[in-house]
């Protein structure tokens, strides 16, 4: 498994296509927690799909004021079709050209395979990585670690409201 960036490291900035004609920079989201979810590819089997799970957990992420971004090496058109098919309500970024460049910056690229790890990063409001986790590529890492990391970020008493 790759050596991914760890807690305390500044999150490398990037600008990637979020739709075929729009780009998103990580820096634009400064001031709110960001969840970066690298995953190998769109169109993995339906019911165990990582992005489908995050889609369902989205209200919990939002309760913490956090934004989630999915990232894979798939192109923007592929992402658009995938997001539409799965009714995803959060952006998927295309780490497509140069291929895997952002995954490489985060230490989350699988050279031999040509796609990224299932690597998760929670970035704090100042742009510092506060938690990261790399799952075996065949195992969907779930959302429990992300939620715990977001809770740790939140000042006491905040975001625990139900």
């Amino acid at each position: 498994m790759a050596n991914i960036l760890e807690r305390g490291a500044p999150a490398p900035d990037f600008t990637l296509p979020v739709t075929p004609d729009q780009k998103l920079s990580l820096g634009e989201l400064r001031g709110q927690p960001v969840i970066l979810a690298f995953y190998p590819a769109d169109w993995s089997p339906v019911c165990g799909d990582q992005m489908a799970l995050y889609n369902e957990v989205l209200p919990e992420f939002q309760r913490h004021g956090a934004r989630i971004l999915g990232i894979s090496v798939d192109g923007a058109w592929c992402h658009a079709a995938f997001a539409s098919d799965r009714h995803l309500h959060f952006p998927l970024l295309a780490d497509f050209e140069p291929k895997g460049a952002v995954a490489k910056k985060y230490g989350a690229y699988r050279e031999g395979d040509g796609y990224s790890e299932r690597a998760l990063f929670v970035i704090d409001t100042k742009g510092i990585i506060s938690w990261s986790y790399c799952s075996p590529v065949a195992v969907n890492p779930g959302a429990d670690g992300i939620l715990e990391a977001l809770e740790e970020l939140a000042p006491r008493g905040q975001a625990s409201r139900r």
Partner: peptide, 24 residues
């Protein structure tokens, strides 16, 4: 139910727990 699953690392369906341990 759903949130208790998310908290416990449920990552798709079905997810089984044998005792307290997730069955992978």
């Amino acid at each position: 139910d759903f949130l208790s699953g998310v908290r416990s690392g449920v990552n798709g369906t079905p997810t089984f727990f044998v005792g307290e341990r997730r069955h992978d």
